[in-house]
Design a protein around this nucleic acid. Sequence first.
DNA 1: TTGTAGGCGTTATCAG
DNA 2: CTGATAACGCCTACAA
Lengths: 326, 326
Amino acid sequence: MPDVAEAAGVSLKTVSRVVNGEANVAPETSARVLEAIGRLGFTRNDIARGLRSRQTSSSLGLIIEDLGNPFYSSIARAVEAAAEESGFMLVVASSEGDDDRERRLVAALVERRVDGLLLVPSSEDHRYLAAEAARTPVVFLDRPPHGVRSDAVLLDNAGGARLAAQRLLGQGHARIAVVGGPAGLYTMRERVSGFRAAMADAGTPVDESLLRLDAGTPDAAAAATAELFASRRGTPTALFCLNNRAAVGAVRALAYRARPPRRPPAMVAFDDFELAGVLPWPIAVVAHDTAAMGRLAAGLLLERIGGSRARPKQVTVPTRLVAPAG
Amino acid sequence: MPDVAEAAGVSLKTVSRVVNGEANVAPETSARVLEAIGRLGFTRNDIARGLRSRQTSSSLGLIIEDLGNPFYSSIARAVEAAAEESGFMLVVASSEGDDDRERRLVAALVERRVDGLLLVPSSEDHRYLAAEAARTPVVFLDRPPHGVRSDAVLLDNAGGARLAAQRLLGQGHARIAVVGGPAGLYTMRERVSGFRAAMADAGTPVDESLLRLDAGTPDAAAAATAELFASRRGTPTALFCLNNRAAVGAVRALAYRARPPRRPPAMVAFDDFELAGVLPWPIAVVAHDTAAMGRLAAGLLLERIGGSRARPKQVTVPTRLVAPAG
DNA sequence: TTGTAGGCGTTATCAG
DNA sequence: CTGATAACGCCTACAA
């Protein structure tokens, strides 16, 4: 910038004014400065800029588990759109479900002075955030905070699981298998407990041997599903997949098993997916609005960044059952 | 940091040393400083840090079309992994296929002093980048640069399309419909020309009325597909979908059309998708390694950041045909 | 309308 | 081993 100033024969401050489009610059001076800028290929340094005033980077941080999972990437998309609308850029990082990585990423983002942080936590104890949260607003996504008071946007996991169970029960199924995982994850626990509640309400006992809650990947879910439906006796007649990963695995396992295909089980999957409607047999899904989750979370975060000191809110996004057309 | 220094009764520079784990600090002094840091909740400000030395933000920028498209999100995941490995964070922005947005995002990222830029360009004239590229290394992804010399990582689009056409031709199909878009997009043009080349090689004339290259969204592709297969006469017997969006739309259209379903057309889709193997009828896909694309691009970028002045490379990632098991 | 002085939080340099 | 001082690139406040 000093170079530009010299080249244009003006002071540094005048260049600054031109670059930022401030008023009170003679058109002629401005033109000369602009010319110099063009000639020298000058670009304003936003990082030095923020240093003085806002002390920020005009960016939001988003920590999710895995960008490759459509659930998270669609959240990321919504967050990015909302951020951009308010003039923020989005820094995305994947924790891969690892506590330590999560902590490291939080620290890195705070050091970079993101203006706010959206976090899908992998850890279950967030007291480590108390210090950061004092400086940088944090909004939790998909899973609630523990040990720190922050806003959170969650799904109605138990409600959705209830709907799933009720549908299968309503179709006359009693032997319902449940596949998903990892078992310890908040969303999984909630969904399983919603499932159990619906079963209890219906007076239908849960056969624990049909619960496979250690299937957190498509492959694991496929293996678990294959096993569940391989036995000759005591085979379940219906299947509840706890998330989109489990659904992909289960669908594969069921599609590929012994040909010609036996009668497929009734199936409900938590999380909608693009091709749910066109599989070889009907699948119902527990759908929800991931875009809304992202938008809501970004909105809450932007309010905090704007200085809101309201009591931390916990917003729950509804789920609904989408049955196949057939 | 001055506060910490005062609290610990040392100089500012000593605090800096401790924070950065430099050698030559007495353990006792270090302990005192650490204590003060903990007590005051101090966090190093990475943005001020970069101001002095590297003049950078230790981050890479990635501009893609849409995080919601699995093709791009899986690239983003690979890029993020590679970036993180080298100590960079990733700033993601969606151009939504819009030239102006692309330019604005590039400018914003350069102003933020990302150390390098990965770009899936929407524009077709990149001379505007010449100035930025001088300061910030740019690597093109999925589509080649025009008017600026930069590295690029591309797919073998024509080759993949050839494979697709050859498969359908080999199955005895001559009336092959092609659905996708937008027509002007580099990848689409390449794929269509690969398709035409294979048809020409086989001596099979292309029926232009079966080409629907304006179907850039699932909905548009579904409509085009429905229309193509609705007619009584001149109906195509096979379908080539130019990308994953078109495939989703086409599958929907074909799955939902008049029940009981007529005999489904033979189908090949460019881009693999998770459930390709389990649809009601067999679908072959032109698969490729998006993770490798992301990794390669990030690698090239990191080399440039490292100061490489090698002649710009253009890397082509191979495609292969994956036929259904059946 | 334009310019000068000072400082944002950190690190590099060089002296103690 | 530790500290004083000068940058880094820009903006705010005040002055001319």
